[in-house]
C-alpha cells in the first residue's frame, strides 16, 4: 500500500502541534536573540573603543530604579514558573494566584521603565545627549516593545487559569508564553548587569 488512509475525523493527539509550536517558538527566540545580540555587539564595540566609560564625562546612573525593575521581572518570572507547575497539577486556585503574581510585577516592571525614562529626563539626559544615553534609551525601548507584546500574551493565560479542563492547545500556550517571558527576563538581566551595573 502506498498511502496512509487519513480521514478528516481523525482524533488529534496534539503531539504534532505541540512539537511544531515548540520548534517555532525556539526559532522565534533565536531570531529575537540575534536582534538583541546585534544591539549588544554595538554596545560592546563602543565600550571597548572608548578610553573611559561612560564617555564624555558622564556619570554612572543611579541604580535604584533599574534594580527595582530587575526585582519585578525576576519576581514575575518565578511566579510564572509556579503557574506552569500548578497548571500541570490542574490546581486552579494556585494558578490564579501565581498568574496574578506574574502579571502584577510585569505591569510594575512596565511602570518602572516609564519612571526610569522620566527620571533621565529630569536630570537632563536625553536620547540625543550622546552615545551612552543613546544606548540606554534604545535598548530599553526595544526591550519594552517586546515586554508589551509579552504582557498581552500573559493576558492570554487568564482564561486558561479560569478553566478547570485544559486542552493540548492550552498546554501549548502556557509553555510558549512562558518561554517568551523568561527570555525577556534574561535579556533584561543582561541589560541590567552589562549597562547599568558594570
Amino acid at each position: 500500500m502506498n498511502t496512509l488512509e487519513v480521514k478528516n475525523n481523525i482524533q488529534y493527539s496534539g503531539e504534532g502541534e505541540k512539537l511544531a509550536a515548540s520548534i517555532a517558538m525556539i526559532v522565534v527566540l533565536v531570531s529575537f536573540s540575534m536582534l538583541f545580540a546585534s544591539l549588544f555587539l554595538a554596545y560592546f564595540y563602543y565600550r571597548i573603543t572608548e578610553p573611559v566609560w561612560p564617555p564624555m564625562g558622564m556619570e554612572r546612573l543611579n541604580l535604584f530604579v533599574p534594580t527595582m525593575s530587575t526585582t519585578f521581572i525576576i519576581l514575575s518570572s518565578i511566579s510564572l514558573f509556579g503557574f506552569n507547575h500548578y497548571f500541570k497539577e490542574a490546581n486552579q486556585l494556585k494558578m490564579k494566584l501565581t498568574l496574578a503574581l506574574t502579571i502584577g510585577p510585569a505591569l510594575a516592571f512596565m511602570g518602572s521603565q516609564l519612571f526610569l525614562w522620566e527620571s533621565f529626563k529630569n536630570i537632563g539626559l536625553y536620547a540625543s545627549s550622546g552615545i551612552f544615553p543613546s544606548i540606554i534609551y534604545s535598548f530599553t525601548w526595544i526591550h519594552v516593545a517586546h515586554i508589551v507584546a509579552a504582557i498581552f500574551s500573559l493576558l492570554w493565560l487568564v482564561p486558561i487559569s479560569l478553566k478547570s479542563e485544559h486542552t493540548f492547545k492550552d498546554e501549548n500556550v502556557v509553555l510558549n508564553v512562558g518561554k517568551f517571558w523568561h527570555f525577556l527576563s534574561i535579556i533584561w538581566l543582561i541589560i541590567y548587569f552589562s549597562i547599568f551595573v558594570f
Binding site: V30, S31, M34, L35, F36, A37, S38, A42
Partner: peptide, 11 residues
C-alpha cells in the same frame, strides 16, 4: 533568514 534578518532589523 531566521538567524540573520534580525541583525539587519537591529541595524
Amino acid at each position: 533568514n531566521a538567524i540573520f534578518l534580525p541583525v539587519l532589523g537591529a541595524g
